[in-house]
Amino acid sequence: MDTTTLIWIIVGVLVVAVIVVVVLLLTARGRREKRAAAQHERAEKLRAEAREAEMAAREREAQVAQARADSVSAAAAAEQAKARAAQASIDAEKRAAAVDEHAADAEKHRAEQAERLRKADEVDPYVTDERTDASGTQRSGTDASAPVSASDDRRSYRESAQDPQERVVERTEDRTQDRSGTDRV
């Protein structure tokens, strides 16, 4: 072996060593970058978990606040319901009084109508008796002994009741029956 061969061997070993060092340096930089990217991803995951935990805590706080508001709202609604019930009771009493007034007015108008019909019968030369005219045709509304409707029967029964509270209860039952067509208590 001569020196030139030895020099070529040394140069070859040095070139291989330089290539290995360059490769190691390049791969070390890539590993460092990969390690930094992995650490960054882990940090992002930790941040995302922290944000989710914060959102969950806020949601729980909002649920607690909503529950408190709901309980306060329910209490207020209960108070409103009591007030509406009291108002409805007052309205029912007012309407019951109005119904009595309207019934009295209706009775007055019926009496006036009956009086007008009686006067018309007195003036009409073709009326032979109270129920038929001269042609024998049945006249409606001239039979004063028959009640006009079932509500008249109930009204006469109501008026015979002694206690005013019984009258209110009976009127309420009558209205319930009139609306539905069936008897509800």
Rank of each mutant, 00 (worst) to 15 (best):
Q66G: 03
A114V: 03
Y157D: 11
D163F: 04
Q87H: 07
V148I: 08
T176H: 15
A83R: 06
E115R: 14
P125G: 05
I9Q: 02
E41Y: 08
M1W: 14
E159I: 01
H102C: 08
V148L: 09
E61A: 15
E93G: 10
A43S: 14
K94E: 07
R31D: 04
D2S: 12
R175H: 15
A85L: 10
Q138E: 08
D91I: 06
S140K: 11
A75V: 05
A150L: 02
Y157G: 01
E170F: 11
A17W: 05
E61Q: 08
E101S: 14
E54N: 13
D91H: 04
V23K: 08
Q113D: 04
D105K: 07
D121I: 01
S151W: 06
G141A: 00
A98M: 08
L24P: 00
D105G: 01
E33L: 15
V168P: 02
A85I: 08
D133R: 06
A37M: 07
A81M: 04
Q39Y: 08
K108D: 11
R58T: 05
L46Y: 11
L25A: 09
A134N: 10
L6R: 08
H102W: 13
A75E: 15
A77C: 02
V22T: 04
E122K: 07
W8I: 06
L46M: 15
D2A: 02
V13S: 07
E61T: 12
E61W: 10
R184Y: 11
S156Q: 13
D133M: 01
L6M: 02
Y157T: 00
T5S: 05
D152W: 00
D152C: 01
V23R: 06
I7L: 09
V15T: 12
M1V: 13
Q113E: 11
D124F: 03
G181E: 03
S156H: 05
D2F: 04
V123S: 09
A83F: 03
R116A: 13
D153G: 02
E170V: 13
R58I: 05
P125S: 06
A161D: 00
V22G: 04
A75R: 07
S71A: 13
M1H: 15
R35Y: 10
D153E: 12
T3Q: 03
R51V: 12
Q177M: 04
A97Q: 11
E54M: 06
L14E: 01
E54Y: 07
E59S: 06
A28K: 05
E166D: 13
